[in-house]
Design a binder for these strands. Structure first.
Lengths: 112, 112
DNA sequence: TAAATAGATAACCGAAACGTTACCTATCAC
DNA sequence: GTGATAGGTAACGTTTCGGTTATCTATTTA
């Protein structure tokens, strides 16, 4: 019995390399679907599905201009990933002293 | 024809909420499997599988002590996620001026 | 109005993900 | 040695994912 997986989860949206590539492309400016699709060998319906996931996660926004749909980066929710990751920074910086202090700080918080 | 998906991909490993919870637990210190599993309602084999994925992504390390296997955080590869996310910081900080400068800098790079 | 273009949706398929139960191996305690 | 404990592996089922082709709608252009 698998979990619902929330479908609008940012971590999940960002897990796929094609979707990350789309976001990376959008960092350089908004673009219509055809231009986004041109960078990949997969079919356009496949791109449409990826865009739907990105929309669901509210990582992009769609606006219509004529028969084109312009996609735009909406980066606010990437902060969720950023703040999760930040909690690990002290660990990979392998400054033993600061790590020790950090862990001591945690156990202090537990006590209170 | 789905992509190979690399299986040791950090983004993929981190996409699952149970695996993130395991990593979060390990930030507070190493722990044997039984202790890691006690926080979840899913079966221990399921936990074992998640741990295998985390090992595959080299996000954790296993060391054996008697019949216990102690899992330890190995946070170096989270840097990959961090550096990807960092590229978006300028966007969510919605400082229009800095964003404009940023995009101009990009187009300068394109020309060269 | 008719044809072309931009793109989404539907139906389908194979593979992977995630869970389960059953079983196996290794170590510890009696 | 025997039983209990720690934890991995195997086999299996269901759901989700990521891709495809075919079809549909909306807009633009001739």
């Amino acid at each position: 019995m698998p979990r619902p997986s929330s479908h609008s989860d940012v971590f999940n949206a960002v897990a796929d390399p094609t979707r990350r590539a789309i976001l990376d492309r959008l960092r350089h400016g908004s673009a219509p679907v055809s231009e986004l699709a041109s960078g990949f060998r997969i079919s356009r319906p496949a791109i449409s599905k990826h865009l739907r996931v990105l929309r669901g996660a509210r990582l992009v926004r769609e606006s219509r201009h004529g028969r084109q749909r312009i996609y735009q980066l909406e980066p606010q929710r990437i902060k969720e990933v950023a703040s999760w990751v930040e909690q690990y920074r002290v660990f990979w910086q392998h400054n033993i002293t600061s790590l020790k202090h950090h862990l001591e700080h945690i156990s202090e918080e537990k006590k209170s």
